[in-house]
Design a binder for these strands. Sequence first.
DNA 1: CACCACCATGTTAACGCTCACATGGTCGGA
DNA 2: TCCGACCATGTGAGCGTTAACATGGTGGTG
Lengths: 381, 381
Amino acid sequence: MTDVGDLVAVADTAAAAGRALLRRPSLHDVALHAGVSHQTVSRVINDRPNVSPDTRARVQAAIDALGYRRNAAARILATNRSQTLGLMVQGEPRLGPASTMLGVAAAARDAGRYVSLAVVAEPSEQATTETLEYFRDQAVEGIVVIAPVADIVEVARAAASPSVPVVVVAAGERPRPGFFVASVDQQLGAALATRHLLELGHADVVHVTGPLDWHDAVERVHGWRAERAAWGLPERDPLVADWTSAAGYRIGRRLLAHAASGDPVDALPTAIFAANDQLALGLLRAFDEAGVEVPGRVSIVGYDDIEGADYFTPPLTTVRQPFEELGKTCIELLLAGMSAKAAGEVPERSAKVAPTLVVRATTAPPPRAQPPARRSRGSRR
Amino acid sequence: MTDVGDLVAVADTAAAAGRALLRRPSLHDVALHAGVSHQTVSRVINDRPNVSPDTRARVQAAIDALGYRRNAAARILATNRSQTLGLMVQGEPRLGPASTMLGVAAAARDAGRYVSLAVVAEPSEQATTETLEYFRDQAVEGIVVIAPVADIVEVARAAASPSVPVVVVAAGERPRPGFFVASVDQQLGAALATRHLLELGHADVVHVTGPLDWHDAVERVHGWRAERAAWGLPERDPLVADWTSAAGYRIGRRLLAHAASGDPVDALPTAIFAANDQLALGLLRAFDEAGVEVPGRVSIVGYDDIEGADYFTPPLTTVRQPFEELGKTCIELLLAGMSAKAAGEVPERSAKVAPTLVVRATTAPPPRAQPPARRSRGSRR
DNA sequence: CACCACCATGTTAACGCTCACATGGTCGGA
DNA sequence: TCCGACCATGTGAGCGTTAACATGGTGGTG
C-alpha cells in the first residue's frame, strides 16, 4: 500500500489536527515527515545512542508537529513486555486496602507501568483463579495481591506462575522464590500498643482480636503475646471478635457482666488492646453505658486511626498504619523481582513498614498504680 | 521462520507445560495442532458462525491441549480496540470513592473490559492532563473519573477527546455530548435527612456543610435548601466546615457559645444535619462535653453511614450511599456511550442512584414539640 | 595509504491477531 | 443437467513497533 504518502502530504500542509481524525500518526508518518527512516525515529523516542543531535532535533520536531504518541499495543507485541502490573484486591472497601491500592497505583505509574485493576468479590479459589487468568490474558509482568484473608493468599501462591512475580500484602506470610511479601509490621503495632499500656503501669493487657482468618488479626495477636511474654506475664487467650463495633460492644458487655458476678478471676481488666478502632468504639460505648470510666477505670488502645478516632469520647489512643508507603514498597519489591528474574535469579524477599502509636485520651495509668515510681505488684485490680 | 513445526511436534508429545517455557502457543500453533488454518481457529475463539461443529470441537480440543490464550496486544493492534477502560481517582482514600472504584472495576470486568487505574495526587490541571495522556497512550475506550472536587472535573471535561466517552462521578454536573454524569443523588439524600427532622416536628434544621469545592457538599446544601423551602422555611445559610471531626467539634462549640451569650436569635438549634458522619461525631462530642443531650435537646443526622456509626454515643441517624451500584451505573453509562458512538450518535446522559436514610438514635422530636404528645421542659442540664 | 573500528542510518523480518477476499464443494431450482 | 447461492475453510495483507543485521562514510593507526 498505501495512501500513507497522501496522508503525509496532507500532514505537511494541513494541521496535525486535521489528520488525527483520519488515523493516529505512526512511526512511519513521523519518519516521512522528518525525512528519516522509521528506525531512526524509534531510536529517538527510545532515547537510544547513535543518533546525531541534528537528526534527533528534526525527528523531535516532527513528533511534536504530528502529535505522535507511541502505540502501546504494537510495542507490547513487538517486545513481548506488557509494562503492566496487575492489582488484585478483595472486594471489601476497608480503608487500609483502599489506601494501599492508591499507593500501589501511584508508585507503579511513577515507575512507568500501567496498572490493571481486578476485584475478586468472594475469596474463593475459583474467583481467584479467574482473576489470575484475567491478568495472564493481559500478560501482566507482576501482580500485587491485597489479600486480608488467608485463603486468597494460598490460592494466589499456588496459581502464581513462576515467570510472574507476585507481591502479597499480608502480614505473616513467608516469602518464597518469586513470591514476595509486603506488610505493615502488625506484630510491632500490637507490641507498641501493649507496651504503651504496660509502661503506664497496667498489670496486664487484654486483647480483643479480629476474626482469625485475617492475617492482620493473627499477627496482632502474636505481637500482643510476645510483648506480654517479654514482660514476664503468663500466657492468656485473646477475646475473639470480628471487626465490627457491635462485636466490641458485645465483648464489653460480657466483660462487665463477668466482673459484676464477683468472681475475682474475672475482674474487669484495666487495660484493653482492641484489634481495630471500631471494636474500640464498641467497647467505649459499653463502658460508657455502664458508667465505667475510660481511661480512669480502664484504658483502651485501638488500631487503624480511622477518621474521627480523634473525636471519639474520649479521643482514642490507637496505632496508625502507613498505607501509602506500603503501596510504594509493593512496587519496589515487584520491580526488584522482575529485574532479578530477568537476570536469572529467583529471589525471595519480604518488607515491612512500621506503624506508629498515636497516644490520645483513652489511656492512663491503672486506678491504683503509680507509674512514675513504677513497681507493679503481683496482685491486680 | 520457523521451528513452529518442531514446537508443535513437541506439543503433540510433551505436556503443554513443557512448551510453555519456550513460547506461549499462538493461533498458528493451535491451527497446526488441529489441522486447520489460523483463520478457522480465530473463528472459533471469536464464536463466529460458519464453522462446522466437528471442526469447532477439534479446534477447541487443540486449544485446551495447548493451553492457548489469545494475545491481547496482538488483538488490540489488529482491531484497534483496546477493550480497556481508564479509571481515574483523586488520591484521597475516603470510603465512598474507594467503594465506587471497586464497583467500577467489578462491573467493567463483568462486561469483559480491562480496567486501567490511575491516581491523580493533586487536583491540578497538569496532573489531570498527564493522567489523560497516560490513558490515551493505552488507547482506552472510555474513562471513568471519580472526582469529588470541582476543578478536576473541569479539566477532565476540557481534555476529554470527543472520541472517548467520559463518565464523571460527580453530583451536580451537567452532562454534555460524550460526557456522562453518574452520581448518588445527594440532593435527595440531604432532603431525606432534612425531611426526617422536620417531620419529627423541628421548627428548623441547621446544616453543617463540607468544603464547598466538593460537589457532594454543594449538592447536599441544595437538597437541604430545597427541602426547607418546601416546608415554607425562610432562606438561611449553612455553616461551612470541612469533612473532619475537628471541624464538627469546633462548630458545635461555636453554637454552644452563641447560645450561651443569650441572644435569642442565636439560640441553640434543635436539629442539625451534618454533611458527613465525622462532622456529626465532632458535634456529638461538643454537645456531650457541654452536657447538651442528643437527641433530647438537639437532634443530629449524619451522612455516609461509616463503619461504627451504629455505635457512636448515641448511635447515629445517617444517610447511606449505594456505592457499588454507582460503580455499576458508571460502566453502564460508559458502554452505552461507546456503542452509541459506534452507531454515530453522541448522546448525553446522566444517572443517579438513590441513597437511603438510616434512622438510629440521634434524632427525636424537639424539646417542646409534641408529635407523640411528648412534653419536655425548656430548661436544660 | 590501506585497514579497521565506529558511528549514523537504513532495511527487513518478525510479533500474533483480524479483516477482506478467494476457493472449492454441496445443494436446490430452472 | 447446469448454474448460482451458500457454506466451510483457506490465503494474504496489514496493524505499529522493535530487534537484528546491513550499509556507507569518517577518522585514527600502523
